[in-house]
Design a protein around this nucleic acid. Structure first.
Length: 335
DNA sequence: GGCTTACCTTTCGG
DNA sequence: ACCGAAAGGTAAG
């Protein structure tokens, strides 16, 4: 059954259009007609819509909770949404502090308001980001969709489309997983996924992973990088996006380029070695403080091609230049 | 130890 | 439209 609700929220506290497509979660689909978003978390299908001073939602609540009263369901859904978007963390004061610390940030702050960190499920986060290595957002999204439709359970049919939960660890451990994922185009990541599931299960499964939330950042990161397919960057993504490590700075190729604008000495460096990685991480942590990872995501989002403003002076549809772009933009178009 | 190179495949961009 | 290069890297050499 559908449960509806709303949460007061200004556009400075959340910009849903950026947050749901800036590469944190790969499971959200935009509905341009209704100006809404659909996606899955907490094993439920959510339809979200941002108004000028609120987020309204409709959620398909699971059968397992059918004994609850309507009021109880509404309260649980509210809590789940607040937890997922971390609305208990006020973003505006953080933006103020980051703007004060950094002129470059200040210039982006108005255009990129409301970019906050989601608090994702650690299992989904781990396997999504194993897929992310040497890869682009579009392909990652399709791989995550494959994981769900092959190994998740169907939780709804919406607009004629089957909707799946993210798979349990135990579903990804089987020997057959690597072979199957290879046929689905996962490439060398297929083996990592199967092995990672195995090792996480050995260490205590989902609850072991979730408990890394209660472990210091350095220790949690060390645990993660010992899992196949997880290197330093992916470990930091997981720390930041699902393990409450707000200071973690994932240094990818984008952040490397951004860092060069702060640290000119980096210009001559060809690639991100561990040494450089650490240098860049520490620089941003000292610049922005304990929520440096959150600040980094604002810079990162502002740098993503599909989230940038179209060039001011460029003709909007006058040249053949746009003929390609029209198709390419179909999933990225802004309101 | 720190720095290149191979790895799967898709998408990008000149 | 084609084709080399890049894509939110990791692990092995």
């Amino acid at each position: 059954m559908w449960v509806k609700g709303r949460i007061p929220c200004s556009s400075a506290e959340l910009n849903i259009d950026i947050v749901l497509q800036c590469g944190q979660s790969f499971r959200w689909k935009r509905d341009l007609i209704n100006k809404s978003w659909q996606g899955v978390f907490s094993n439920k299908l959510w339809i979200l819509k941002q108004g000028s001073s609120e987020i309204s939602y409709e959620v398909l609540s699971s059968d397992a909770e059918c004994h609850q009263t309507k009021v109880e369901k509404e309260q649980i859904c509210n809590e789940e949404l607040v937890d997922y978007f971390q609305f208990n963390v006020p973003l505006v004061p953080l933006y103020d502090a980051w703007s004060q610390a950094d002129e470059k940030f200040k210039k982006l702050a108005l255009r990129y308001q409301g970019v906050r960190m989601l608090r994702q499920d650690p299992v989904e986060n781990v396997f999504s980001f194993i897929c992310s290595s040497n890869n682009n957002i579009q392909r990652i999204s399709s791989m995550v969709e494959h994981l769900c439709s092959s190994y998740g359970k169907q939780i709804a049919v919406y607009n004629g489309q089957k909707v799946y939960s993210f798979p349990e660890l135990s579903s990804l451990m089987d020997e057959s997983v690597e072979r199957n994922l290879r046929t689905l185009g996962f490439g060398y990541r297929a083996k990592y996924i199967q092995k990672a599931a195995e090792i996480i299960e050995q260490r205590g499964g989902r609850s072991w992973l979730v408990n890394l939330r209660n472990v210091p950042y350095v220790e949690a990161k060390a645990s993660l990088v010992s899992i196949p397919g997880i290197g330093e960057k992916v470990a930091d993504c997981i720390c930041l996006m699902s393990l409450d490590k707000t200071c973690a700075i994932p240094v990818d190729t984008h952040v490397f380029q951004i860092a060069k604008t702060y640290l000119p000495a980096l210009a001559e460096k060809k690639s991100v070695t561990h040494r450089i990685y650490s240098e860049i991480s520490i620089f941003f942590q000292e610049l922005y403080g304990p929520y440096a990872g959150w600040a980094h995501t604002v810079l990162f989002s502002a740098d993503l091609r599909h989230l940038k403003d179209p060039p001011e002076k460029a003709p909007k549809r006058g040249k053949n230049q746009q003929n390609n772009t029209v198709q390419k933009r179909k999933k990225n178009t802004r309101i």
